[in-house]
Design a binder for these strands. Structure first.
Length: 1029
RNA sequence: GCCGAAGUGGUGGAAUUGGUAGACACGCACGACUCAAAAUCGUGUGCCGCAAGGCAUGAGGGUUCGAUUCCCUCCUUCGGCACCA
């Protein structure tokens, strides 16, 4: 027998795996698949960090075990190679980022191969490879096509001395990381992706996946759905204020204007009676709008400018004391009690959440309380339950000092006040999300160019398309509500592109009456001169038809979405299952059977479209017969065919597509046709952003100037590039079909491999990356391009590896551990084992090089066991039991990612075998197979040493037999008054009486009883006897 | 400030439907082998105590025959954050 020489055998087996393509996936698609995924690394110049191997090794173990369980396993690797560090390196050295990236990838590849991972190396992806980012660009254009990409003015971090835009990461303590100069917020037009449209869907999707609780909670908190109300407060000049007449600005008191309102969002509308002042965000629009009222503008402006310099971090973490300025010259009226209350501007209110204005309830909100204390504002109790003079009370309780809400509990009071506000038209129930749209532009070189051009000519044409007076009526259905679901979004979007939109909240929606609804709609201020589009959803569809008939005016387009038809009672099961009662069902029936003059409706309607969805519980497909006339008409007109059954498209998107939304919104922005993709990066001389804040691409005139793919005229390219997140939002899809040059991945490959079965990554990516990639996948699902709504079935996370001093590893601290050195010193297998053994996988743990030695010793022991292997079967029952116990423990521990205890049970097994004279080949084979997933090289070598010719990678994983686990003797603990006084070995099937008797009769126990009679004797089966005296 | 996780020997950690606290490994000590060292093997190793025994899972309290595990109060450390109204 040779000495264990890791260097030699590791090279040997790595070559074997490569030559034999051992870990390339099988083409056989009848075999059950398993897709395990790790976050692909950013190939930095310093090479692999010991943090990387932790998740890579863990998922390698999972993948290797799955192969031995008989699955067709895909365990891919790639490189997320666009990014700031490479770009900054290019700025410093002038070397092209592509060149540097290629070198770094080569180094990473060498290191990853050295670690013996079972990656399918034939499927490597690189986000900076044009054959990859061609599809990143193509996917972006799908967002653009569906109206989910739009341009908006957003603030960027601007370094005043470098004159370039900075990433958040480059702003340290409010200063520029490069030069230490001041940083301020500056506005720039940026491309946005409308992830907020998917807020509900991203939240709901979490129900269908198996994520570790922290990941799920973080996603939920980030999306941040909260229910509350928006409430309008009327602004009045403050005539009482003497000060305002003689203020610094010198302006006179502004005459009353009755049309100025400030709208606030609150999750606690029940505390409206306790609102004693209002606060506006300094960077919000309201302050600017109200400038005319404000008599101390100089002071206010100074405060706003100061707030601009503060980062969000300063406004949150560092600032203990709240600051603010009272707006002199104006007050607002609390609509619930007509009290005049003062208005402040203060930076504890953010412009980008809600409306940028809050009603302050110091009695029941901690932040408002602090502010009120400082500025000596009234603190009013409206919920009983806590002492509000000491601190704000935000808990549950009974309403007081609140007029008609008195004596109600918080939940009821919320409902009551919302319906009161809605009735008076001063507020409404509202769902608010924390999630904001995604800024998708970067003014950088080293990213995917955004494949759009701007064409003046086409922009002009599209403007002409807009007509003067366009009005849209949105009609909701039964139990519906104008504020619910997607109606508010739709209203916002349509208003944004110039429509006037009516969303009437129809009366008695629980038990509607057709005449009443139609009468209500006829009151809307629309007439024959207008261009009218009517949208009816669900029960709103027959209402819309009846409305057209009764109003008797020309309609440009009638859009019916998931309409109800003349359902018979036998079709009502679907309706009942969603909770409608008999009374409501009767209403629907009456609605639908009401006579409609279809000829008349069709003659009034210029164009009509019906959307049916196959999976709508309300709508049986049989209803299509109810709209025969319309159906025929649609065929005749639109050429789109008949019922537009866009499965997978949301109803919201379907409707929006009827309004040429994207054309209106981004008029002039023309996508490159597919045959012009990929749009590659041009060669540049300098990698710095330009002085105007545009990316270096803007300086390359011959690249920027191009022709419009639509009209052939002259056009200019977009010079912004995509963020680093873009390529990583879909890489898991590309792995399924990495060399496809016709599609981003073929439907059959997607169908076989999606979704990812198990995705492990760092906690630092459980918010943004996870959310972004789920968003992309959900969108692609909705437009029918991927087969599953959720991309990842299961998500786990690993803890960080800290340096030996317990600090974070970093170059500047000089405490970085290099994997190359570890492998050189101890071998890959020992290194892998240590990485997995060092602590619980999901927790941070400090590196200890001495620990690796222990793993090497363990492997030496396993190696040396070869000598003792005999062909004969072992007869010893205890050993058989240990074999089965070890198989069970290792199998279960891998599934739970308890790798440390799995390895320790292998050590215990090995320690026992070491003490044996002879060991059976079968027993040793079990050890080698179990070990093979952790330490694959030594396992392959030992496997061939004991006479096998094929790789161990596809051998069957050992199975345990429960019946072999049964012990025949157990050790009972004997306690007297809770303290351990003796142990006794007894047969496992001992009876309770027998066990108690033996315990009481035990010599050591008599001493402790001191002749006293036991008061109580407790027996826990096969565990202990507890005696109480 | 908010949210999340965690506090166990000299060190990393094991053990939780409440049932012998410290598995496994590192380190350390002693012994064997060696001229010697390294490596390897063996023995020991929570703390106090000669011992009997007592004390021990961040601190304090509670429930229980019995608590690392459940409950309450407090302290500390780590991670995330967009003061989210």
């Amino acid at each position: 027998m040779n000495i264990y020489d890791p260097k030699q055998i590791e090279k040997k087996w790595q070559k074997y795996w490569e030559d034999n393509k051992t870990f390339e996936v099988e083409k056989d698609k009848t075999k059950e698949k398993f897709y395990s995924l790790i976050e692909f690394p950013y190939p930095s110049g310093v090479g692999l960090h010991v943090g990387h191997p932790r998740p890579f090794t863990a998922m390698d173990i999972v993948s290797r075990k799955k192969r031995m369980d008989g699955f067709n396993v895909l365990y891919p690797i790639g490189f997320d190679a666009f990014g700031l560090p490479t770009e900054n390196y290019a700025i410093k050295t002038g070397r092209p980022p592509a060149e540097v990236t290629a070198e770094n990838i080569a180094n990473f590849t060498r290191q990853l191969k050295m670690l013996g991972y079972s990656f399918d190396w034939s499927r490597v992806v690189d986000t900076t490879d044009p054959t990859y980012f061609k599809w990143t660009q193509w996917l972006f254009l799908q967002f653009h096509k569906h109206g989910l990409a739009y341009k908006k003015t957003m603030p960027i971090n601007w370094c005043l001395s470098c004159k370039i835009g900075l990433a958040n990461e480059e702003v340290v303590d409010g200063k520029c990381e490069r030069c230490g100069g001041d940083v301020e917020k500056r506005d720039k037009e940026q491309w946005m992706l409308a992830i907020t449209k998917y807020a509900d869907s991203l939240l709901a999707g979490l129900e269908d996946v198996d994520y570790i609780p922290q990941a799920r909670t973080q996603q939920e908190n980030w999306i941040g759905r909260s229910e509350g109300a928006s409430i309008k407060f009327r602004v009045i000049p403050n005539l009482k204020s003497e000060e305002s007449r003689h203020s610094g600005s010198g302006s006179l008191v502004v005459p009353p204007r009755d049309d100025v309102n400030i709208e606030v969002f609150t999750t606690r509308p029940d505390t409206l009676f306790g609102a004693t002042y209002m606060v506006l965000a300094p960077e919000g629009e309201y302050v600017q709008q109200l400038k005319d009222y404000i008599s101390n503008w100089d002071e206010v402006e100074e405060y706003i400018n100061k707030a601009k310099l503060k980062s969000d971090l300063e406004r949150t973490e560092l600032q203990k004391e709240k600051t603010g300025i009272k707006l002199e010259g104006m007050m607002v009226i609390n609509p619930v009690n007509n009290e005049e209350i003062p208005v402040f501007v203060a930076d504890y209110v953010l412009a980008n959440y809600g409306t940028g204005a809050i009603m302050a309830v110091p009695g029941h909100d901690e932040r408002d309380f602090e502010f009120a204390k400082k500025y000596d504002l009234e603190i009013r109790e409206v919920i009983s339950g806590g002492n509000i003079l000491e601190s704000a009370y935000s808990g549950d309780g009974v309403l007081v000092n609140s007029d008609f809400l008195n004596n109600k509990n918080v939940v009821d009071a919320k409902k009551e006040i919302i319906s009161w506000l809605e009735e008076k038209h001063i507020g409404k129930g509202k769902v608010q999300f924390k999630l904001r749209d995604w800024v998708f532009s970067r003014q950088r070189y080293w990213g995917e160019p955004i494949p759009l051009v701007y064409c003046e000519n086409c922009a002009e044409k599209s403007k002409k398309l807009k007509v003067k007076s366009q009005k849209v009526v949105l009609i909701h259905g039964i139990s519906g509500h104008a504020q619910e679901n997607w109606f508010p979004w739709l209203k916002d979007e349509l208003e944004h592109i110039g429509y006037t939109v009516y969303v009437p909240n129809l009366p008695h929606a629980e038990h509607p009456n057709l005449e009443e609804w139609v009468d209500e709609l006829c009151k809307l201020p629309i007439d024959d001169g207008d261009e009218i589009v009517v949208v009816g959803h669900s029960l709103g569809a027959p209402v819309a038809c009846k409305f057209v008939e009764q109003k008797n005016i020309k309609i440009k387009k009638l859009i019916l979405v998931a309409p109800t038809g003349t359902q018979q009672e036998k079709d009502w099961s679907g309706l009942k299952s969603v909770g409608l009662d008999e009374k409501a069902l009767k209403c629907i029936h009456n609605f639908n059977s009401a006579k409609k003059d279809w000829k008349h409706i069709v003659s009034l309607t210029e164009e009509s479209v019906i959307y049916l969805s196959d999976n709508d519980p309300y709508i049986p497909l049989s209803v299509k017969n109810d709209y025969q006339e319309l159906n025929a008409r649609i065929k005749e007109f639109s050429g789109k065919g008949h019922f537009n059954r866009k499965v997978g498209m949301t109803q919201f998107q379907a409707i929006l597509s009827e309004f040429n939304y994207e054309e209106h919104l981004n008029s002039g922005w023309i996508p490159l046709p597919e045959d012009q993709l990929p749009l590659e990066l041009p060669q540049v001389e300098k990698y710095e952003p330009t002085e105007t804040g545009e990316s270096p691409l803007a300086a390359i005139e011959e690249w920027v100037n191009t022709t419009c793919p639509q009209c052939g005229g002259s056009a200019r390219r977009e010079t912004d590039t995509m963020p680093n997140w873009a390529g990583s939002s879909w890489y898991f899809l590309r792995y399924m079909d990495p060399h496809n040059d016709k599609e981003f991945a073929s439907p059959e490959n997607l169908k076989y491999w999606a979704p990812v079965d198990w995705y492990n990554g760092g906690m630092e990516h459980t918010v943004l990356h996870l959310l972004y990639s789920r968003f992309w996948n959900q969108f692609l699902y909705d437009i029918g391009l991927v087969p599953t709504k959720e991309p990842y079935k299961k998500r786990t996370s690993h803890g960080m590896i800290l340096a030996e001093d317990g600090e974070k590893m970093s170059k500047s601290r000089g405490n970085v551990i290099n994997p190359d050195e570890m492998v050189e010193q101890f071998g890959t297998d020992a290194f892998r084992l240590y990485i997995m053994f060092m602590g619980p996988f999901d927790q941070a743990v400090a590196w200890n090089t001495d620990g690796v030695k222990g793993m090497r010793r363990f492997l030496d022991k396993v190696w040396n066991l070869q000598e003792k292997v005999v062909v004969a079967e072992a007869k010893d029952n205890n050993l058989t039991r240990l074999v089965h116990q070890t198989i069970k423990k290792v199998t279960q521990d891998i599934d739970k990612m308890n790798f440390n205890t799995a390895i320790s049970s292998l050590m215990e097994f090995t320690n026992v075998l070491t003490k044996e004279e002879k060991i059976s080949k079968a027993g040793y084979a079990v050890l080698v197979k179990l070990l093979s997933v952790f330490a694959p090289h030594i396992a392959e070598e030992l496997w061939s040493e004991i006479g096998n010719t094929k790789s161990i990678a596809y051998e069957a994983w050992p199975q345990y037999d429960e019946s072999q686990l049964v012990e025949d003797e157990v050790t009972l603990a004997v306690q007297v008054n809770g303290k351990l006084r003796a142990t006794l070995v007894v047969p496992a099937d001992i009876t309770e009486e027998d066990a108690k008797a033996r315990a009481l009769g035990h010599g050591d126990i008599g001493k402790w009883l001191e002749g006293r009679e036991p008061k109580k004797v407790i027996y826990v089966k096969a565990k202990l006897v507890s005696i109480v005296v």
